[in-house]
Amino acid sequence: MSTGRPPPRPDERSAPYWAAAARHELTVARCSRCGATTLPPDLTCPHCGSTDPAFTFVATTGQGTVRSWTVVRTSFLPGFDDDLPFVLVDVELDEHPHIRLIGRLLDGVDAPLRAGAGVEVAFEDLEPDVSVPAFRLVP
């Protein structure tokens, strides 16, 4: 199984996020110093400024709200041509409204989409043990 799409290459900071994604769990990074959450995990905590945030990755419900979207009709990356056109949604996480993620909307380009629509996380399996967060509209 391989889609030809570029899979994420986890690094020291992101490895727990991608390991959770492979289990189809969406997590966010929580600073061990101030408890605030963030994505992506940066070198310092964007909330308290700690240079040793020792992020832990905590589960989310994967529920979010669509703030914007685009229909992608041309791709500059390998592996997407067979999927064109597809929708990317800009999603504010309901439990963490300061965090916004971008993912493919798996409902297709004809799905009824509007700003404020509710979505939940879904996962695309790119390779064995490599899954990428995406979204589906909730009814």
Partner: peptide
């Protein structure tokens, strides 16, 4: 062939290039 560094957060789902970058706030 793989999305490393900052691009691991966006390229695997096909969010790439300045056109995608401007399309989101424009539609918003």
């Amino acid at each position: 062939t793989a999305a490393a560094g900052q691009q691991q957060w966006t390229a695997p789902q096909g969010y790439f290039s300045p056109l995608a970058m401007i399309a989101l706030p424009y539609n918003e």
